[in-house]
């Protein structure tokens, strides 16, 4: 790891100021992606700004309409939260399936969606549930938030503070993990909210998480696994690597989507 300046601000304003002042600053939350990246010398930030001590980012609130997960809420917390399990059980299940127990003990929602790893799980939930990403500056609709591989609508001086997930009538996440890394080789999150159906796919797209409009259309007419029989998933634009070629990923998207729909029943 290259050395850097370390900061631990107490409030958001300080955090933003430190990042702005840094030559090449980076925010650190749980560190489950950043620290391994630094260890492998794949990044060399001048300043690491540890926001884990910033107040107000660790709350988890739920109502009949929505679940609000603070940016610093850990995956392990979401996984066992009675509120989340009651309102959006698919979200708790997704959090429970992220990486391993030790990563869930440190990793945060904010870190996950700010990084937008193309194989991360949370982006699928954000996009399928049509969540709102809340930052120190504004609220960003899910459909506007993910802008590409490891890329988001966040500006340099912007920090995710929370995500607000609307409560779905039905939702489920089906994941086919990469056998080695345990990231999603393909993960499909299906949600039905207010009659509309949203399907988001992670792990597969070469630009990160994406929606599957044809699936959504088919499921809007008939919210059942068989409704997807008529949908062909194209391999274009899908990742191809040692563990899964694009064609196999395309196939898995269909299988995981059906399983997610089945799990909604």
């Amino acid at each position: 790891m290259y050395d850097f300046n370390y900061h631990r601000p107490r409030d958001l304003a300080d955090a933003v100021r430190l990042r702005s002042a840094a030559e090449d600053g980076v925010f650190l939350a749980g560190g489950m992606t950043l620290i391994p990246t630094l260890r492998l010398r794949l990044a060399s930030p001048s300043d690491v700004i540890d926001i884990s001590g910033v107040d107000g980012l660790s709350d988890l609130e739920a109502s009949a309409e929505s679940v609000r997960v603070g940016a610093l809420v850990r995956h392990a917390t979401v996984a066992v939260s009675a509120d989340v399990k009651k309102r959006i059980p698919a979200l708790a299940a997704l959090a429970d399936g992220i990486s391993d127990a030790q990563v869930r003990n440190r990793g945060t929602l904010g870190g996950s969606i700010a990084n937008n790893d193309p194989a991360a799980d949370y982006p699928a939930a954000i996009l399928a549930l049509g969540a709102t990403v809340m930052t120190n500056k504004r609220e960003i609709a899910a459909d506007d938030y993910f802008t590409g591989l490891f890329d988001t609508a966040l500006e340099a001086d912007e920090i995710v503070t929370a995500a607000r997930f609307p409560v779905a009538e039905a939702a489920a996440y089906a994941k086919f993990p990469n056998p080695a890394s345990r990231y999603a080789l393909v993960g499909v999150f299906v949600a039905r909210i207010g009659g509309a159906v949203r399907v988001a796919v992670t792990g597969a797209g070469d630009q990160g998480v994406f929606r599957a409009p044809e699936m959504e259309k088919a499921l809007a007419g008939n919210f059942a696994p068989d409704a997807l029989n008529s949908v062909t998933v194209a391999a274009d634009g899908l990742n191809s690597d040692l563990h899964a070629g694009a064609e196999y990923r395309a196939h898995l998207i269909g299988v995981m989507a059906k399983r997610a729909v089945a799990a909604c029943a």
């Binding site: 990469n178 056998p179 080695a180 890394s181 040692l242 563990h243």
Partner: peptide, 9 residues
Amino acid sequence: ITGSFNDYC
């Protein structure tokens, strides 16, 4: 290509 536990299972 399989140079870490991310790829070597």
